[in-house]
Nucleic acid binder design. Structure first.
Length: 471
RNA sequence: GUCCCCAUCGUCUAGCCUGGUCCAGGACACCGGCCUUUCACGCCGGCAACAGGGGUUCAAAUCCCCUUGGGGACGCCA
């Protein structure tokens, strides 16, 4: 079989949003799955709106997602001579012509068409004028007036367009820069792209592009139009629906594999499977299982998937990802053994890395700040006995293994005649400042003797000071 | 307005192509319960959908038509 060559062509007019990332993913996955090639192309023919910052932001996002390309990045702005050449070809073969209609002319043309209940389109004023290049001329493609153009879509099936619905669209602007519908076709032809997977919103562009392929006598690629991603109000996903930029998810503590898993699963399925590793995605991805209906971006589900991916990632691999979040909270540490043991206590209860950093704070504080309610409820005189007894027991231990700790607590239970719950909560507050935390034995083991002892003693002091103030 | 696409629980979806095994399965969320040193995890259970109407057929979530609803495109943006 012929090698599959796909592409992702973002226009650098903003950051990479999740919808764009999804189509990039589909193309990338399909190329990887078929052992084909994936090409990256930057569509910057609109010189006004394209920026270097956007280009960099897109690279950054793709890199974070782990989407790598085999060819490119190509920049359309550097390929203008090629487009010029093809435009001339079309002119020469009679498939294109110069048009001198002004923007104002077109505007009134559209208005009129709308009023009479038709589709606003170019009326062909200059179609047969045989104009030559002038100061304000554009080049238009001469589209057939009759007949139909059929799009054989991999995902949607056959879609038939009446050519009468189409008009003579502009392929080269009056400033001589080429337009989108023209350049995609030239690029896809010259880059050997044989599989075009893109958003649903391009369906109506496709017949025009097919006409171009035909005029150029080039074979058509396979087209697959994937349904769009919508916001929770069913309208096109935008900023007001919350975070839409890929890197925003990175900054909120999401794992790239989780985002990828979610994005691909939104609109594609593999039976009942919900969780996929990157490799599984590559192995199992197929165009046949892409759905036809638009999907709503659901943050809740992404969040839950992120938690699953955090759980599934070996703690050691999480270290470098967690560090920036700790840094953000003022924690500087390079002690990876300590970090690894901390992560082991937190990974099953964190939905994001940011949450994890937040919950890990007590491991790094020299001075535990007690949550007011927690201290009031658990650091009371009745806790004095058990905490002091625990200090006594722990002092005799050289090492804090889980088994040793359990025994120590058992002894405290016997001596104080209290249930574990009565002892563990005050200890928890003493050690973490909060009422909710990882298991008490785990914490003690990770914190190690020195920190534990000093925190317990501080708690004892705290309780005594409180009592003194009362009397 | 014109053209195009879409339609299963609140959401993502399986099932649809190749009608019967579906009084429709899974996941998220939600609600119970169990586990338990807290919070989580985990486990068990619950709530909840074939948009409506016509056909075709012994039989329709599955095939056909219409209606309705939603989305998208109509630019010298991509």
């Amino acid at each position: 079989m012929e090698e599959i060559i796909t592409r992702f062509p973002p226009s650098p007019t903003g950051y990479l949003h999740v919808g764009g990332a999804r189509t990039a993913l589909f193309n990338w996955l399909y190329a990887r799955h078929t052992k084909g090639r994936f090409v990256l192309r930057i569509e910057d023919t609109d010189v006004q709106r394209s920026t270097q910052e956007s280009t960099d932001a897109i690279f950054e996002a793709l890199e974070w997602l782990g989407i790598d390309w085999d060819e490119g990045p190509y920049f359309q702005s550097q390929r203008f001579p090629i487009y010029e050449e093809y435009a001339q070809k079309l002119l020469d073969s009679g498939h294109a012509y110069y048009c001198s209609c002004s923007s104002e002319d077109l505007e009134t043309m559209r208005k009129k068409a709308m009023e009479t209940g038709g589709k606003p389109k170019y009326d062909g004023t200059c179609r047969d004028k045989r104009l030559s290049k002038g100061d304000n001329t554009v080049i238009r493609f001469k589209a057939p007036l009759m007949g139909t153009t059929v799009l054989e879509d991999i995902i949607k099936g056959n879609i038939v367009f009446q050519n009468s619905e189409l008009d003579d669209f502009i392929i080269q602007r009056s400033d001589s820069t080429p337009t989108y519908n023209f350049v995609v076709v030239i690029d896809d032809i010259t880059m050997g792209i044989n599989t075009v997977i893109r958003g649903d919103d391009h369906v109506n562009n496709t017949p025009r592009q097919i006409l171009l392929y035909k005029a150029l006598e080039s074979p058509l690629p396979a087209f697959g139009h994937v349904p769009m991603v919508l916001g929770n109000d069913r309208s096109r996903l935008s900023k007001r629906h919350g975070a839409t930029s890929v890197t925003a998810y990175r900054d909120m503590g999401y794992l790239p594999d989780a985002l990828i898993n979610y994005l691909v699963r939104l609109g594609w399925s593999f039976g009942d499977q919900e969780f996929f590793t990157r490799d599984e995605l590559i192995e199992k991805f197929s165009l046949e299982n892409i759905g036809r209906a638009a999907g709503i971006f659901d943050q809740e589900k992404l969040l839950s998937l992120n938690a699953d991916h955090i759980k599934a990632t070996p703690p050691r691999e999480l270290i470098p990802i967690l560090i920036p979040f700790l840094k953000e909270k003022g924690v500087e540490t390079g002690d990876s053994d300590y970090l690894e043991s901390i992560i082991k206590t937190l990974n099953i209860r964190s939905k994001t890395l940011r949450d994890m950093a937040e919950d890990a704070m007590f491991y790094f504080q020299d001075e535990i700040v007690y949550d007011e309610k927690a201290a009031k409820k658990f650091l009371s005189p009745s806790a004095l006995g058990p905490v002091r007894e625990l200090i006594k027991q722990l002092e005799q231990l050289d090492q804090f293994g889980e088994k040793d700790l359990e025994d120590a607590f058992k002894k405290v239970m016997e001596i104080t005649e209290l249930k574990l719950g009565k002892i563990a909560q005050p200890v928890r507050v003493a050690l973490t400042g909060k009422t909710a935390s990882p298991g008490i034995f785990e914490i003690i083991e990770v914190l190690e003797k020195e920190r534990v002892m000093s925190r317990l003693e501080k708690a004892v002091q705290f309780i005594m000071d409180k009592e003194q103030k009362k009397s």
